[in-house]
Design a protein around this nucleic acid. Sequence first.
RNA 1: GCGUCUGUAGCUCAGUUGGAUAGAGCGUUAGCUUCCGAAGCUAAAGGUCAGAAGUUCGAAUCUUCUCAGGCGCUCCA
Length: 567
Amino acid sequence: MNAEIRKKIAIALKSLYKEKDEILSIDIEINRTSDKVHGDLYTNVAMKLAKIVKKNPVEIAENIKARITLDDNIIKIEAVAPGYINFFISTKNKYDQIKKILDYSNEFVENGKAKKNIHVEYVSANPTGPLHIGHGRGMILGEMTAKFLAYQGHQIKREYYVNDAGRQIDLLLVSVVLSHIGKSMHVFVDEKENKDGHMLTYKGSYVDSVALSLNGVLKEINRELVISFLNEPIDSLIQYLKERDDYLHIRKSLVDEILDNYIRKDLEAVGINFDSWYNESELYKNGNLDEVLKIIKDKNLSYTKDGALWFKNTQFGDDKDRVLIKTNGDMTYFATDIAYHVYKFKYHDVLIDIWGADHHDYAQRLQTALKALGYDVDTRLQIHLVQFANLSKSGQSISMSTRSGKFYPIQDLVDEIGRDATRFFYLIKRKEHHLEFDIDQAGQENKNNPIYYIQYAHARITKILQDLNDREISEENYNNLNSKSEIEILEIFDRHQETINKAVFEIRPDIITNYLYKLSKVFHSYYAETKILTENVKGERIKLLRCVDKIILDGLEMLDITPMDSM
RNA sequence: GCGUCUGUAGCUCAGUUGGAUAGAGCGUUAGCUUCCGAAGCUAAAGGUCAGAAGUUCGAAUCUUCUCAGGCGCUCCA
């Protein structure tokens, strides 16, 4: 409808101001009125024009109005102060929405738009323990990003980057070794000195189970020798482990154990899927890392100082230069991440990283480095930062640390409130906003819980359609759909297409959660005031319900949430 | 201190590209079951859109400053 009106106005403008390009190129906005008194749609184009042609906006509005003819759809036009042009749309047009919605399917592909090969990386939590609720938001938003991009018609690869070669793995390894020799609670001297109470080793109870599973792999480790390292800084023990012939084998077993028994299961519980898993250690093996470091050196983007290799970040506006290779020879994440992205660039048009907002600074650093290496970062790399979720339970905010073992596993959340509520609540707000996630509310089975409320709408409709059986249904007479809530529902229908499209193209699942909630609200209201299964069931009402149900089902499918026919 | 995200009702949030009188839910208060699922519905009260200035015919929306909160500012990841 908007497009039709826009076209009519454009024609009117052309006849009014044929010679002026400035006017003809003006963006004609058609919006929904906030009050029915003003009709259904309005445009402010006359007020915009007033500035250009220096005339009274109401007069302009009148002129435009005079050049637009009424038809089946537009039954009345008015030009009012301070310059709005209001359009009154026929009920016939509104009822056409019902057919459109019943014919609709989740298809969004815009013709003529270039389809790209896009790599989406998300979660990528260190394989050092179970995933917890702090990972939840990035997990689900990552999955939705990939899904919506696929809806847009792009070719998507969803990848989990496994940091299987960094220091965290070595620290976890030490923790497991300690458990293996029965010294789980040991605290190293450098941990004791750590004033902020920062643990180096992992203290979660899962460490003991992992140690148990790795019993065979660890059996060659000499208990007495390990104990002799306990009164030294932790790096002495790490050094010893790294020098062992079986180090790589042990490390791989450890990472596999964590991935297979924890992370993959956690992801499965929430319904997160990956096409591929890429190991950081690959970058060492296949020479990508060395290659990138060589290019950096050749381009004179690095220098050596204090025994470390530094990237010249300050040349590109950063506060300070950043270390690539530490004095002890270890790579920083910065170095391996550059190599990983260079690798990804080889095979994909666009890279998307879904990261926590705490990586903001780091994101810029990485972009700077890749730009310096000559990549078109502005068009080919998007780093989506996801703000933190503050989860609370019983009024208490939950804080977490994998290291100290104090965390709330995502598995527990799923067990408690279910997979679908978990997904829904993480999606309720746009990623740029902080999210308050009240676990008590998400677990409730009443109207306080939006996902429950939406599911309930679907269940009620399902029940009615089931009970319909052999009842007599009258032919649809859409003119009867004129109660307050029926009109309201029709208006929500009218917004359907643009809402879903906006959600998909702006990658905003929150728009869908919101829309479904509003629709459900009006539906429940309608349900309470109108009895559907009367003696002679009105066909138009059944059509209306089918539409509501279809929108809910389509929406839930987009969010990968399972509808419940009964609850 | 610097960077960044945020600030709308007691709480959690919508608010379309700047448009007409600022919108929900929770909570509070008052009501609604011979009837399709009351796991629900209706209504009332509740606002200096953090504050100030600016741009504009018009600002919750744009600009600047101030204040408050989250996150980051390691040879951590």
